Computed example of a mutant assay.
Amino acid sequence: MISYAPLWATMEKKHATTYTLQFKGEISSSTIRRLKAGESVSTNTLNALCRILRCDLPDIVEYIDDGQGQAL
């Protein structure tokens, strides 16, 4: 499962708000809603978040093994 918990921590550390993402970074309100709900977003969105916040991908998302997947 992908968690966006690092995103919210990074935003707090950088004093960024969802307003910052929407109006300075052109992230749509529906994408913000998806992030808050823990739903999937595109790699383009992840790229934009890294650019806006000047951070790396691990500062935005983390993978949490929920034990429901099958190993290869």
Results as ranks from 00 to 15, higher is better:
M1H: 13
M1G: 05
I2G: 02
S3M: 03
A5E: 15
A5T: 14
A5Y: 01
L7C: 08
L7K: 14
W8I: 10
W8N: 09
W8H: 04
T10D: 04
T10S: 07
T10M: 02
T10H: 06
T10Y: 04
T10W: 01
T10A: 12
M11V: 07
M11Q: 07
K13W: 10
K13E: 09
K14R: 14
K14P: 05
K14S: 14
K14T: 10
K14N: 07
H15F: 11
T17G: 03
T17P: 07
T17F: 08
T17H: 08
T18V: 07
Y19L: 09
Y19S: 05
Y19D: 09
Y19A: 09
Y19P: 04
T20C: 10
T20E: 04
L21E: 14
L21T: 07
Q22T: 04
F23P: 01
F23N: 15
K24T: 14
K24R: 06
K24V: 11
K24P: 01
K24S: 13
G25E: 06
G25F: 00
G25Y: 03
E26T: 03
E26W: 06
I27F: 14
I27G: 12
I27H: 09
I27T: 11
S28P: 00
S28I: 12
S30C: 08
S30Y: 10
S30M: 11
S30R: 15
S30A: 15
S30I: 12
T31W: 08
T31E: 00
I32C: 09
I32K: 15
R33W: 02
R33E: 02
R33T: 08
R34K: 15
L35S: 03
K36L: 10
K36R: 14
K36D: 07
A37R: 10
A37P: 01
G38N: 12
G38M: 04
S40G: 05
S40I: 04
V41F: 10
V41T: 14
S42F: 12
N44G: 12
T45N: 03
T45E: 01
T45S: 15
L46Q: 01
L46K: 00
N47S: 08
N47E: 06
N47K: 04
N47Y: 10
N47T: 12
A48P: 00
A48M: 11
A48D: 06
A48T: 05
L49F: 04
L49T: 06
L49D: 09
C50E: 15
C50D: 01
R51S: 15
R51W: 02
I52V: 13
L53A: 09
C55V: 09
C55A: 10
C55R: 14
C55L: 07
D56M: 03
D56F: 04
L57N: 05
L57S: 01
L57T: 12
L57A: 06
P58A: 11
P58C: 15
P58R: 06
D59G: 02
D59P: 00
D59F: 00
D59A: 15
I60L: 11
V61C: 10
V61S: 03
V61N: 14
V61E: 11
E62T: 14
E62F: 01
E62A: 12
E62I: 14
E62Q: 11
E62L: 11
E62C: 12
Y63K: 02
I64S: 00
I64E: 09
I64A: 01
D65T: 08
D65W: 07
D65P: 08
D66F: 03
G67F: 12
Q68Y: 11
G69A: 13
A71D: 04
A71P: 00
L72Y: 02
L72P: 13
L72Q: 08
